[in-house]
Design a protein around this nucleic acid. Structure first.
Lengths: 132, 132
DNA sequence: TCTACTGTCTTAAGCACCTAATACAATGAG
DNA sequence: CTCATTGTATTAGGTGCTTAAGACAGTAGA
């Protein structure tokens, strides 16, 4: 993973860890790798990982058993809530920016459509797996 | 205007100045207030304003006549381009995040619709923010 | 019991960046 | 010419991030 040097690494780790929780790489109840192992994976200092983990704990996404390791919360509804919150924040950030320079609702929807297409390599493919 | 202390002020000024250019508060060819005047308006140091202005010049959005002041570019197509670029960047940032946790196209469109409605002033807004 | 592993805490150093204060250079008005 | 205003450059201070090294406490397993 690559880091943006203009943003604190621990912040970017929080984002990455949240993503892993939301997409299920780290499912509810899972035991996480130790801070030293994660530090090795990302090429950072264990303290930096710990700072990110503290943030996740503060938000009730994981808990640490002091000697047994660290575990994702069992509360799957909390994870659903996280997913919703992240989505809303992303949308709100975007809408604030778009409205800031005067875009209307229709323009916004069209912009999303255009940009989505450029994000998807193949037009033919329906990657519309609307499960939830 | 209020600044986010976790982001450099000059960066936020670039955003604000770009917005003014895009929405026409600072139209093509306009003479801008001096760095000291702007610094006073935003409550920051003139150097901070200048750093933001240097960025705008680097992007061809304004030019400085060393003793006469600073002027927005006459090239209105450049401003149109800026508007398009800002919109695309905002959309791409959003889509990267949304796809990052597995949202599909339809979900994204629906999310935008929901959030747009809550952004409309008339709607009763209850902020249900749990930390992410 | 002894060893290895877990998270946690402390201290310190180095570094980059942001911000501020100030001085400088050039031009136009009077 | 003299002075005020313009943008610009230099220097210094402060803050926060990251890394590093080490020590501590508790637990599981050989």
């Amino acid at each position: 993973m690559q880091f943006d040097s203009s943003i604190p690494i621990w912040t970017q780790l929080v984002t990455e860890f949240s993503r892993r929780i939301v997409v299920g790489s780290w499912p509810a109840g899972a035991r996480l790798p130790g801070v030293r192992a994660l530090a090795g994976e990302f090429g950072v200092n264990p303290n930096t990982v710990q700072r990110a983990m503290s943030e996740l704990e503060r938000d009730g996404l994981c808990r640490s058993e002091r000697t047994a390791g660290r575990f994702i919360t069992e509360d799957s509804s909390r994870i659903d809530q996280l997913r919703a919150t992240l989505a809303e924040e992303a949308a709100d950030d975007f809408l604030d920016r778009a409205r800031g320079f005067g875009m209307g609702r229709t323009q916004v929807q069209q912009l999303i459509t255009e940009r989505w297409d450029r994000h998807v390599p193949d037009h033919d493919e329906h990657t519309d797996s609307e499960g939830a």
